[in-house]
Simulated scan of single mutants.
Amino acid sequence: MKGLKTLLFVLAIFTFNIHSAQDETDTEELSLDKGSIDSQFDYIYKKSGNYRADGKRYEVVRIISLDKLRKNVLDSLNASYKKEAELNATIAGHEATISSLNKKLEETTNNLASVTEQKDSMSFLGILVSKGTYNFILWTIIAGLLLLFLLFVYKFRRSNTLTQEAKTALSEVEVEYEDHRRRALEREQKISRQLQDEINKYKKSK
């Protein structure tokens, strides 16, 4: 019984190969040379023969087609591996570029922060202080100098007033002194005349 089934299977395969050998070879080569791996598997499945033995279904595929499909699968895998390697190299290059750009960005940010700090700060006695603090110190010094100037002006005017008052008082004293000296001189002259008159009278009385 098994020998009969095997004989029928061989005859079916032989008959199938005789009728479609030439056309199948041409279309198979074209189909296995084009399209995706999935479509090539579909092609192999559609072009395969089938039979049943012991209640099981079997597919009959040409060895040359399997070899071609195997080669195509390996070629696809190798192309995928090559593409993956190229993509990994590209990704690594992009990561290196991104890392370099991030480093430059960090340096630029630090430089910008430093420039901004220098722009917003000023040197005072060799110390870097903020503009607000610098302005506060500057206006405090200006206010102090202004107060000192006003105090000096006040003292000067006060001294000038006192000097003028002293000069006026001195002038008054000098006037009084001259008047007193003049009166004293007049009294002295009067007394001298009176004394001389008395002396003259005394001499005449003798």
Rank of each mutant, 00 (worst) to 15 (best):
Y81N: 15
F41P: 09
T90G: 12
T116Y: 04
E174D: 10
I142A: 06
Q164A: 13
A96G: 00
Y134R: 10
E172F: 14
R158K: 06
I64V: 09
R70P: 04
F9P: 00
T97G: 05
S76P: 03
Q164M: 14
A12F: 14
D75W: 15
S123A: 08
A92Q: 08
I142D: 03
I142V: 05
D26L: 11
F156D: 05
T6L: 07
N72F: 01
V129Q: 00
N200M: 09
D33T: 06
F156K: 01
T133I: 11
H94K: 13
R57H: 11
S80D: 11
L146Q: 01
K56H: 08
A166H: 07
F149W: 06
L162F: 05
S205V: 04
G35D: 02
Q40G: 10
L105K: 11
L30D: 05
Y58N: 09
R182S: 06
T27W: 09
N50Y: 10
L105Q: 12
L162Q: 04
R70V: 06
A184C: 04
N135F: 00
L151P: 00
T163A: 11
F14C: 12
S20F: 14
S20W: 13
E172I: 12
L147G: 03
L151R: 06
E186C: 14
G126A: 07
S171P: 03
E95T: 03
L147N: 02
